[in-house]
Amino acid sequence: MKTFEQYLRDASGADVIDFRLRATSIAGQPTTFYVHPLGKDGETLDFTVIGNALVPNSAAGLDFGAAIQALKAGKRVARAGWNGKGMWIVYMSGMSLPPFSTQGTDRKVNDRTAKWIGEDTPLETLPYIAMWTVNAEGRRAWLPGWVASQSDMLADDWTVVG
């Protein structure tokens, strides 16, 4: 995947000095934009603005840093190189829950957790990355606390999913 800097450098080598920039901002959706050489045929780059990062709208080619930015912006991401189909990861923000012993609330510590931390202990969870994967029996499974391998961190085949 070509970076924005590479795109501009290549275009300047082709005597392109002016570009058309079109931004789209719709309430509740990320801002997107595209850049195209003005008055010449050439490559168009499409981006989504995620935090302070520009994430190319391509089928593949993101590095791990861009994948993390996409996760923090609420996107699902995956690697093209993963063996399982339909696998992806998401960022889960932290949360606080009242103790299991709390009355009259729909959201509270569940009995499985209360067994370990105590029925009168509130729960604070830290943010983490979770994976939608396949278990040993071939069934879909939720894996909280996914950890990237060195191969994952160095790969340039990350994609934004759906």
Score class of each variant (00 low, 15 high):
residue 35 V to N: 02
residue 30 P to I: 10
residue 20 R to L: 14
residue 31 T to Y: 02
residue 60 A to I: 03
residue 82 W to C: 02
residue 121 T to C: 09
residue 151 S to C: 10
residue 42 G to M: 02
residue 74 G to P: 12
residue 76 R to E: 13
residue 116 W to G: 07
residue 154 L to N: 12
residue 122 P to E: 00
residue 80 A to M: 14
residue 44 T to D: 11
residue 100 F to P: 10
residue 162 G to P: 12
residue 33 F to D: 01
residue 117 I to P: 13
residue 98 P to T: 09
residue 87 M to G: 04
residue 37 P to E: 04
residue 95 M to F: 15
residue 152 D to T: 06
residue 82 W to S: 00
residue 140 R to F: 05
residue 90 V to Q: 10
residue 29 Q to H: 14
residue 67 A to N: 02
residue 1 M to G: 14
residue 138 G to T: 02
residue 26 I to E: 15
residue 108 K to T: 12
residue 143 L to G: 06
residue 63 D to E: 02
residue 53 A to S: 06
residue 79 R to I: 08
residue 23 A to Y: 12
residue 4 F to T: 06
residue 24 T to L: 05
residue 53 A to H: 08
residue 85 K to T: 11
residue 48 T to H: 01
residue 89 I to K: 01
residue 78 A to W: 07
residue 161 V to G: 00
residue 159 T to G: 11
residue 70 A to R: 03
residue 153 M to T: 09
residue 56 P to E: 06
residue 146 W to I: 01
residue 119 E to H: 06
residue 60 A to N: 08
residue 79 R to P: 12
residue 144 P to R: 06
residue 30 P to N: 12
residue 154 L to M: 14
residue 65 G to N: 10
residue 109 V to S: 00
residue 137 E to A: 09
residue 77 V to S: 01
residue 29 Q to T: 13
residue 4 F to E: 11
residue 145 G to I: 05
residue 94 G to D: 02
residue 149 S to Y: 12
residue 26 I to Q: 06
residue 50 I to L: 12
residue 50 I to S: 08
residue 105 T to N: 06
residue 49 V to E: 02
residue 9 R to E: 14
residue 103 Q to D: 13
residue 28 G to W: 03
residue 126 L to T: 15
residue 48 T to L: 04
residue 51 G to Y: 01
residue 52 N to S: 02
residue 122 P to A: 07
residue 110 N to A: 04
residue 10 D to T: 07
residue 27 A to Y: 07
residue 150 Q to L: 15
residue 4 F to S: 09
residue 102 T to I: 10
residue 141 A to N: 09
residue 40 K to Y: 00
residue 80 A to Y: 09
residue 29 Q to M: 10
residue 48 T to Q: 07
residue 50 I to C: 15
residue 123 L to Y: 02
residue 7 Y to W: 15
residue 157 D to N: 00
residue 138 G to W: 05
residue 141 A to D: 13
residue 107 R to G: 00
residue 23 A to M: 13
residue 57 N to T: 01
